[in-house]
């Protein structure tokens, strides 16, 4: 392991000749974010996981086009056209018939809806919900953490108390208790319920998800606010809000990026899990709901269950490993 300083000394001694272009590049300063990004690019696991995540994201964003590309849709069909009404199993595609390009993932037993279309919509719900929840919880966590760490005193005590309170309250039980109440109160008709159930789930995930970031940011701010650049900014009369946003926030980029990349998979998994328990989104396709419905068909039609299971597992594992790689890349202590 050579220290960067050693490299510098060597270049300094040979200064009789003007440094070559390559040598100048190697000693050029790089920002921590740049260093992390370069490390990330050289990490094969991170690259593979990033491609997988990008693939899922593309499916989610371009869901309508992907569906029309395969010529499938989630529209309800007259079940008898696709389903054998006696066995309730599909007349086309798996499990009893071969692969068909009309329905690459087969059709659902009972209802006859196309599995691929449902899968794509499930991917969309999952990523959309996880993204909204991540953005909101990060925003709340960062704001509260900044304020608590910078202002200190009674404000810090109050915010820290609530952080600890929410941390000690179990997420699942909170979700179970709050979700039905919100849905009952505000979801008065089907259209409203569709929107309300989505946002009540986001609300629950955010309410039980902001504490980690808040704690992390608070801790960082506590040490940052004593640094010279912050004191200098204060001395020349920069207003507090500007110090927070322009001086302190850029220094928090690394922990925030890491916490975002590790909370996304958590939310994807939580959404599917809650849908599986029957308290997830209503009126939208969700992988968790498909898993719940498909469990009873396992013996005769395993593919029906495996499709959403593989979807959840691959997406969550890829996101998690990518998050770990990002954390390692930003951590100067890890060596590869």
């Amino acid at each position: 392991m050579t220290l960067p300083a050693a490299d510098l000394a060597v270049h300094g001694e040979s200064s009789s000749a003007p440094p070559t272009e390559a040598a100048r590049k190697s000693i050029a300063g790089r920002s921590p974010t740049r260093i992390a990004f370069d490390r990330l690019r050289k990490d094969p696991i991170a690259v593979i996981c990033f491609v997988i995540v990008l693939f899922f994201a593309a499916i989610a964003i371009f869901a309508p086009w992907v569906q029309s590309l395969f010529g499938v849709s989630t529209d309800t069909v007259l079940a008898s056209t696709r389903i054998d009404l006696v066995t309730r199993l599909p007349k086309i595609g798996p499990p009893n018939h071969g692969f068909t390009m009309d329905h690459p993932f087969g059709v659902a037993p009972g209802s006859g809806t196309d599995n691929l279309a449902v899968w794509i919509e499930g991917c969309r719900t999952s990523l959309f919900l996880a993204t909204v929840a991540t953005v909101l919880s990060t925003f709340i966590g960062v704001t509260l953490g900044l304020v608590a760490g910078f202002v200190g005193g009674a404000v810090d005590a109050v915010i820290s108390f609530f952080t600890d309170l929410f941390l000690s309250f179990p997420f699942l039980l909170g979700a179970l208790a709050v979700a039905p109440i919100i849905s009952e109160r505000y979801g008065t008709d089907i259209d409203k319920l569709r929107v309300v159930s989505f946002y009540s789930l986001v609300f629950i995930l955010v309410i039980f998800g902001w504490m980690g970031v808040a704690r992390l940011v608070r801790g960082e701010v506590l040490s940052l606010r004593e640094r010279e650049f912050v004191k200098a900014a204060r001395v020349i009369g920069v207003p507090t809000s500007r110090i927070l946003v322009r001086e302190i926030l850029p220094n928090l980029l690394a922990p925030i990026v890491v916490s975002v990349s590790l909370s996304l998979p958590g939310y994807v998994a939580a959404e599917a899990g809650l849908s599986y328990l029957g308290i997830g989104v209503f009126g939208r396709e969700s992988w968790g709901q498909t898993v719940n419905g498909a469990t009873s068909y396992w013996e005769i039609y395993p593919l029906f269950l495996l499709e959403p299971v593989i979807g959840i597992a691959v997406l969550v594992v890829a996101l998690n490993l990518l998050g770990d790689a990002i954390r390692d890349a930003f951590d100067p202590k890890t060596r590869r």
């Binding site: 898993v291 594992v317 998690n320 490993l321």
Partner: peptide
């Protein structure tokens, strides 16, 4: 690390 990234219920 990989094993524990898979959601438990799956």
């Amino acid at each position: 690390l990989v094993f524990s990234s898979i959601p438990y219920y799956l």
